[in-house]
Design a binder for these strands. Structure first.
Lengths: 111, 111
DNA sequence: GGTGTTATTCGATGCTTGTCGAATCGTCAC
DNA sequence: GTGACGATTCGACAAGCATCGAATAACACC
């Protein structure tokens, strides 16, 4: 069976939590890779694509932070985790925020 | 004499530092008050306007974080500190970012 | 110079965070 | 079942951060 991991509803998004999540360069790299991939991707592929030199526990931790902030959705699919960015919801709640941060992340030297 | 307190040049802005600075609700409140005030304001007036219940050392610390991130400029003027947001510079480096965060901050329950 | 004002620095404290190794869990394939 | 795989959880650690009270600094004004 596939199930969606715990995540906040859009009404309870907290800007402090979201910005804290975005304040980490590793998480921004993950998020950008997820954003550029069109449609859902599994974690392993994404991590490889992002190419950050972090251990699995750390990456798993970052996925959780992003998800609990409301930025991403994770669905279990067999032993994979399929992830994607909750674009419309984030955009509806905080218009322009995600786009601005991600394009800023491209310009920034450290991602 | 009036002098400008240490601040980074726009080329060395670091997105991680900027987002970390923006991730604190107190700092966002200060920044929003500074942004809404047209033209430079002194710290005392601004703090009163912002109305956050924090001690002076803490507020001073927040001013410093904002300044060292490159978001604000502080100029000493007698015993006052005149502050303002470095709008054009931030906008030139990370377009849309500041506006998105500040308008998000207005929508957010916790600032 | 002495005094009050404005803001910073110092030192301490408690909390949070990023990171990892080891152990664990759920799932698929054989 | 047994093993391998993908990912999470647990426990720990060092680093960073927000906060405050007390002390300090810079300045204006009489």
């Amino acid at each position: 069976m596939s199930r969606t991991l715990p995540e906040p509803v859009v009404e309870s998004f907290d800007l402090t939590v979201i910005l804290s999540a975005l304040a980490d360069p590793g998480r921004r790299t993950i998020l950008r890779a997820m954003y550029e991939a069109e449609g859902p991707v599994d974690c392993a592929t994404l991590v490889e694509k992002a190419g950050l030199g972090l251990s699995n526990p750390t990456i798993s931790h970052h996925y959780r932070v992003l998800r609990e902030a409301g930025l991403t959705r994770t669905v279990t699919e067999g032993r994979r985790r399929i992830v994607h960015v909750r674009r419309e919801e984030v955009e509806g709640r905080f218009p322009g925020l995600l786009g601005a941060v991600l394009s800023a992340s491209e310009r920034d030297a450290h991602g």
